[in-house]
């Protein structure tokens, strides 16, 4: 009796293929998808071992871990896509702890029928974003759900980082602390909204989607005792400051004139009845620091390409109500409250 062996490795057709249920079934099709689409893009020593987990050692015991699910619609937008977002979003959460990101894991939930061509684009942009950030995606998972039970692609990334010895973020915000942002707010939200199906409008605004850990590393080198750092993503700048107000039992007073907002974003918000303070960002950070450190910190931020337009936008104040208030450019004062539900356009 002779046993024939077949060594052929059929290539999946990325150009014309779509995600099928068997791509998640644990059989050969899944194996091929992982080999030909994911491994080739993410390519590193841990993935090359083909294990279900990755083993590594770290130099420093102060570790940071975070996880983030990404479900954006549309999947591709000016300035990025769900792939780059899934890398930047998680790396930024690590960076906000003052840590240097090292490794990422990625879990994909794919919808049956999703074009492999688009999946490849997403995976390629994840790989580029990770490589640019000097981080490896070292383990992952793929699942497929039936058509109609997902929205193309959902990606969950978990990140791990280490906090350098010298970093001593105090995690307390005190009245008098200065509040600084690293640039124009609202770009990401407006860029994404401009592509929504029922809303398409022409704009040159691109998402600010970027990894901020190099900027934070530079900031912490200048001022190792920053008081707090956060990336104002969903809920925007207003959301972050309200979270801080509650967490640190302080109020904030902002100066509307000082908040960097592009004219195009202002214009789009005006048309749609939105407030840029509540619009999402993906490459922005807010930092609270001691008043004496503010000018040095601002100067160091401005020296980095992701901080050119940084500005001091206000300060923490003692306020038993923990209100975030703002001096309007009109000369009045108002509260900048939490966002209720989704931002909805005004009617007339």
């Amino acid at each position: 009796m002779t046993i024939e062996t077949f060594k052929a490795k059929p290539k999946i057709s990325i150009k014309h293929g779509v995600v099928e249920m068997n791509h998640g079934a644990g059989g050969k099709a899944m194996h091929q998808l992982i080999e030909q689409l994911f491994l080739s893009a993410f390519d590193n020593e841990w993935l090359a071992q083909r294990n279900d987990q990755a083993c590594f050692t770290v130099s420093n015991p102060r570790l940071v871990m975070t996880t983030d699910g990404h479900v954006i619609s549309p999947l591709f937008f000016p300035g990025g896509d769900i792939g780059s977002l899934a890398v930047h979003g998680t790396l930024n959460d690590i960076a906000m702890a003052g840590a240097t990101p090292l490794y990422l894991s990625a879990g994909f939930i794919l919808e049956e029928g999703f074009p492999l061509r688009d999946l490849q684009k997403i995976v390629a942009s994840m790989a580029t974003a990770a490589r640019d950030a000097n981080v490896c995606i070292i383990t992952g998972d793929t699942k497929v759900v039936e058509k109609g039970k997902g929205d193309g692609v959902f990606i969950t990334t978990t990140g791990l980082g280490v906090i350098p010895e010298n970093v001593r973020i105090t995690h307390t915000i005190l009245p008098g602390d200065k509040i600084i942002v690293n640039g124009f707010i609202g770009d990401h939200g407006i860029a994404v909204m401009s592509q929504r199906q029922n809303l398409q409008f022409n704009t040159h605004i691109v998402s600010d989607c970027a990894s901020l850990h190099e900027l934070t590393a530079m900031m912490l080198e200048t001022v190792p005792t920053l008081h707090s750092l956060r990336d104002p993503t969903r809920g925007g700048l207003a959301g972050t400051l309200n979270e801080w107000a509650e967490q640190h039992q302080v109020g904030f007073c902002l100066n509307e004139n000082a908040i960097p907002i592009r004219d195009a974003v202002r214009g789009a918000c005006e048309l749609l009845g939105l407030d840029p303070l509540y619009v999402a960002n993906e490459g922005k950070l807010v930092v609270a620091c001691a008043p004496a450190d503010a000018d040095t910190l601002l100067a160091s931020m401005k020296a980095h390409p992701l901080g050119t337009n940084a500005a001091i936008i206000g300060e923490a104040i003692a306020d038993p109500h923990h209100f975030v208030q703002m001096k309007t450019s009109f000369g009045g004062k108002r509260i900048v409250d939490w966002l209720a539900g989704d931002q909805l356009p005004r009617i007339c």
């Binding site: 309007t328 009109f330 000369g331 009045g332 004062k333 108002r334 005004r346 007339c348």
Partner: peptide
Amino acid sequence: GGHTHAIHRYGLPTL
């Protein structure tokens, strides 16, 4: 309501 919104958003009563 548009006026109500503007009055509060710009802090007119304080002026």
